[in-house]
Amino acid sequence: MKKILGSIFIVTFIALMYVNQQALIYQMGLKVKQNNDVYTKLIDHNKILVYNVLNLRSPVTLEKRLLAKEVELSMPSQWQVVKKAIHTPKKFVFDYKPVATKGFLANR
């Protein structure tokens, strides 16, 4: 009788553990799905924002806006461009002097 009761208990315990595990898996899946939905939503939102930025930066849009304010831009002429000399640090120059001045190894 004890054996029967013991085996019933073990089987019930295993069954309960199995159900609990399934519930946890289900919960985890749900959480992953929710996070994935949020991620997708953010990506979509980002794409819409990127599109808006591209749209605002588009030459067509900029031109329309400037023309609406009666501002007409044109490419600069050469006299309108100021070339600024950029200071660059002096590069290390390898001062090569041939060791041999005569003979086979001489720098010809």
Partner: peptide, 13 residues
């Protein structure tokens, strides 16, 4: 439902 939409930022250009 989410659906992809083709967009052209430069409009008529």
């Amino acid at each position: 439902i989410k659906e992809p939409q083709r967009v052209y930022p430069n409009g008529v250009m």
